[in-house]
Design a binder for these strands. Structure first.
Length: 640
RNA sequence: GCUGACGUAGCUCAGUCGGUAGAGCAGCUGAUUUGUAAUCAGCAGGUCCGGGGUUCGAGUCCCCGCGUCAGCUCCA
């Protein structure tokens, strides 16, 4: 290799010789004009960098185009700068916070005297178009701390960030046209490369995510490489809005939350009640099959119980205030754990008794802060599908395997995809770190042995033990908490949960706190959105609606209704108005099946079956056949 | 809890400059007896979130609460 050239390696292993000082952009040009036009950034030795950064000899280089997922983050971060550029032009003194790319877009925080109005956001979006048309290059510059302090002398938020840099840290600034920002980069080559973007909303956000600090004004937006992707994304947002469980809950008459009852308190209407009852029955039966005992505990308990558990110290603000009667203080139950512990403790347990699994659909009360309430998904009274499993240390792996099996079974029934995550020991963990870590390792082993592609959340465990979380993905690709299995070494100590071992000595039990669905409220709220209100037959509040074509066939229709009801199916007769009107009504109610009975059907003893959403694609079938079909579908818990 | 927006019939919403509240859907009644996503007509339905204030007069303007929504923060 001579000193007049450097060699870099491409992903396919090919080596390319370039003159010294060449950048990734030059590399792209050397490979071909198409790539030169398409390249947006580069991955050099594993780090994403600007296209115009000089390459070092021996570097391995991968050029990023709009096909690479990493490039999207670069684009969005640059979009945030374009946003800030526009805001600075329209609101000259605006302070600049942070402006990162996020999962499906970007945001930027501004310190402005007045919150942004929707009109302003629109004007800003328009101005961004001008910044893009100007096609400013993004220029990176390494500066000294003193230079940086001078450059951002008027920007207190940036100054605050600057003093945090370590002495040996490289400080970089980026400029695009008039806008200069303290920023690590990387960026797309020029603002003109941003094409398809949209500002979505503006709202307050605390500086550095700290509620004790000042509130900045955050503008959210999103950006994509193609118009189609942007449109798909916006369409998905619209779709999510249509599926909002609060909207569907009203339209399908599933539940309500009313001011007179109180914020965060869900009233389950008959339709919602049916769905819930079916799920609860299914769940309870499944749990009993899997070796659980069903227990019941009161909704109110002496405050002393939560003093023992330690929850009172930590969560007093989030509990309903005490009911005090001559010094006896009572609390609405914020969790079921201590109650189950007391049941365990009510007698001496043998190692032969373990695992012992206590399950309860336990209703809990938490005084959640008003701003956090959200339909059924965040409420102040909810029913957990809770269980506490008491095991010996040597049973951890086996029990987690059972839990993962059970979780898998349940989530599949509802049609959810999911992934798993393991959270390990945090700084603040109590007890012997070796015990904690050994348990984490064992859980990791379980997940590995099952071939699960789990995510590791290092330091994300509770202070009392590691946990495995199941995260489900719904029909729109959004993620929800779908179950959590937490190991607990602390509560057994606090409550003195012991068993007598084979050695005839007392040993401390280990507790697993677990929930499979979360709470009935959150789970069914999520389920409403997952199905878009169109519940599969086994869950549908109303499974079949029978429609006589006209009055003279009502009798025949009634017979069919009676026959279906006798089979335990949830059936209604609708003989009100015109057939078209009733079909429309049934479709809007998302009833899975309509059975139409007119002259033809009454005479042949059949029924014309119209399926939800299938339009005129209907089939006439014998009534017995219809019954069997429905029963089979319910039995299989078919997803439809 | 914080910032902002919003709160009118069961639901979705209109209501101008401060002059005493309206539509569509749903509901009810009647006519129609209907063959695949809205038949027609009529009736009924209001503490304009609550409380104060300004005004001759407040759904409308001001203040204080409550609630909802978006985001932040929090979530045993």
């Amino acid at each position: 290799m001579n000193s007049e050239s450097i060699r870099v390696t491409l992903p396919d292993g090919r080596a390319v010789a370039l003159p010294p000082g060449c950048s990734a952009a030059d590399l792209a040009a050397a490979i071909g004009p198409g790539l030169a036009r398409a390249a947006l950034a580069a991955v050099v030795d594993g780090e994403i960098v600007d296209l115009n950064r000089p390459l070092a000899d021996g570097a391995s280089v991968r050029l990023l185009t709009d096909r690479d997922p990493e490039a999207l983050g670069v684009l969005r971060h640059s979009a945030a700068h374009v946003l800030a550029t526009a805001v600075r032009e329209l609101v000259p003194g605006a302070g600049i916070g942070f402006g990162p790319a996020i999962d499906d877009g970007f945001y930027y925080d501004f310190d402005v005297p007045e919150p942004f109005t929707p009109d302003q956001v629109e004007a800003i979006e328009k101005r961004m178009g001008e910044v893009i048309r100007a096609d400013h290059p993004f220029e990176r510059r390494v500066v000294t701390r003193d230079e940086a302090l001078e450059l951002f002398a008027d920007d207190p938020l940036k100054l605050e960030r600057l003093v945090e840099f370590a002495d040996d840290e490289v400080i970089t600034v980026y400029r695009d046209g008039p806008f200069l920002d303290l920023c690590r980069g990387p960026h797309i080559p020029t603002t003109g490369r941003l094409r398809h973007f949209k500002l979505l909303s503006a709202a307050g956000a605390y500086w550095r995510g700290d509620e004790r600090r000042r509130m900045l004004q955050r503008i959210y937006g999103t950006a994509f490489f193609t118009k189609k992707d942007l449109r798909t994304h916006l369409h998905r947002l619209e779709e999510a809005k249509k599926r909002d469980h609060r909207v569907l809950g009203k339209r399908l008459d599933l539940f309500s939350i009313q001011e007179e009852v109180g914020p965060g308190f869900v009233l389950w209407h008959p339709n919602g009640g049916r769905v819930r009852r079916i799920i609860e029955d299914f769940l309870r039966d499944t749990l009993v099959e899997h070796g659980y005992e069903i227990v019941y505990t009161p909704h109110v308990a002496s405050e002393e119980l939560y003093r023992i558990s330690g929850h009172l110290d930590v969560f007093a603000d989030d509990m309903f205030p005490a009911m005090d009667d001559d010094g006896d203080r009572f609390r609405m139950k914020p969790m079921n754990c201590p109650h189950h512990f007391m049941i365990y403790r009510s007698q001496t347990r043998s190692y032969r008794d373990l695992p012992l699994r206590f399950a309860e659909l336990g209703t809990c009360y938490r005084y959640e802060r008003s701003g956090t309430l959200h339909g059924m998904l965040r409420v102040r009274s909810f029913t957990q599908d809770d269980a506490h499993i008491f095991i010996r240390e040597d049973q951890i792996a086996d029990e987690y395997n059972r839990l993962l099996d059970l979780g898998d079974h349940l989530l599949r029934v509802f049609g959810y995809e999911y992934r798993t995550a393991l959270s390990t020991r945090p700084e603040k963990a109590i007890g012997d770190p070796a015990v904690y870590d050994a348990a984490s390792d064992r859980l990791a082993g379980v997940l590995r042995d099952r071939g699960l592609d789990y995510e590791l959340d290092e330091g994300g465990g509770a202070f009392y033990g590691p946990k495995v979380d199941v995260l489900v993905t719904d029909a729109l690709g959004r993620e929800w908490q779908g179950g959590t299995f937490q190991l607990d070494f602390l509560m057994p100590e606090r409550f003195g949960l012991e068993y007598v071992g084979a050695d005839n000595r007392r040993h401390r039990a280990v507790v697993v706190h677990r929930t499979l669905l979360g709470s009935m409220e959150r789970f069914i709220g999520g389920l409403i959105e997952h199905y878009g209100g169109a519940f599969p037959l086994w869950l549908a509040p109303e499974q079949v609606r029978i429609l006589p074509v006209s009055e003279q066939w009502t009798e025949s229709a009634r017979e069919l209704v009676a026959r279906l009801r006798a089979e335990g199916l949830r059936v209604e007769l609708d003989d009100r108005d015109t057939l078209g009107y009733r079909i429309r009504a049934a479709e809007m109610r998302k009833v899975p099946y309509m059975g139409i009975v007119g002259e033809r059907e009454a005479e042949a003893g059949t029924v014309s079956v119209r399926m939800r959403g299938a339009g005129r694609k209907q089939v006439a079938m014998g009534r017995g056949e219809f019954v069997e079909r429905l029963k089979g579908e319910v039995e299989r818990r078919a997803l439809g």
